[in-house]
């Protein structure tokens, strides 16, 4: 299949791109830093034993004007898009966001409004070709508001709701949405935070996500145990949630 990945230069996106290229999928990378894109493209070239590095185009979730040109260029270079994956996102801990309103607004914009904007372009391209899969990394933080991730969780809750809505509206027309809800995964994003129990690693998350893409599963928790963890957390009484 032909897959476009936004944010595959690092973390879970990097692991997913490696898995896809190793099994023979054709990739196109989108990301904001051209030098990083080039290094990742070369890494994927070696891992996939490709004659040339996969194509890569600049695209920045903070700059909506880059979305359409990047996706168009990707569609043109691959010929046809089967899957669009978004792993890119902004992250900061709640204490940082609270002390910096600009940073907080930027995060809410990137993680919700602009991600939705990017997905809208992707949706149109996929639907105009008769369907495809839109796989977007949301978070377990969107399942239940928590004091330690108020803003990030709110943005991800909105994103999860958007993806569910897309699924309801366009499933019959061939659009498959995969909303990935990673729990704590050891990547550069979470470096410096103490890993809680059930912390996952990017390669295992990638294997789960690839399977969900193949099967068109609308929601996937990774690691899998987070589905049950969040089932409990969602039903905790408010008084308990206020404790921390």
């Amino acid at each position: 299949m032909n897959a476009v990945l936004l944010g595959a230069t690092r973390g879970m996106g990097r692991a997913l791109a490696r898995l896809l290229v190793a099994r023979g999928d054709a990739l196109c990378l989108l990301g904001r830093d051209p030098a990083e894109l080039e290094r990742s493209a070369r890494d994927l070239q070696v891992r996939g034993a490709l004659a040339a590095p996969p194509p890569a185009f600049p695209c920045d979730l903070a700059r909506p004007e880059t979305f359409a040109p990047a996706l168009d260029a990707a569609a043109e270079s691959l010929g046809r898009l089967d899957v669009v994956v978004v792993t890119a996102a902004d992250f900061a801990v709640q204490t940082v966001l609270e002390s910096d309103p600009d940073r907080a607004r930027a995060l809410a914009t990137v993680d919700f409004a602009n991600t939705v904007g990017f997905c809208e372009h992707a949706r149109q391209i996929l639907l105009s070709a008769g369907g495809g899969t839109l796989c977007v990394f949301s978070s377990v933080a969107g399942d239940r508001a928590r004091s330690s991730v108020v803003l990030y969780g709110a943005a991800k809750a909105g994103l999860s709701a958007y993806l569910e809505g897309l699924d309801h509206r366009y499933h019959r027309q061939g659009l498959r949405t995969v909303c990935v809800k990673p729990g704590f995964v050891r990547t550069g994003m979470t470096a410096g935070l103490d890993p809680p129990p059930f912390a996952g690693d990017p390669d295992r998350v990638a294997r789960r996500v690839a399977r969900a893409i193949d099967r068109g599963r609308p929601v996937v928790y990774a690691p899998a145990v987070w589905r049950w963890v969040m089932l409990v957390v969602r039903h905790l009484p408010r008084a308990v949630m206020r404790l921390r």
Partner: peptide, 12 residues
């Protein structure tokens, strides 16, 4: 500094 996440092959 832990380097394990910097694991890209740059040329082969």
């Amino acid at each position: 500094a832990g380097t394990a996440l910097a694991d890209r092959v740059l040329a082969f």
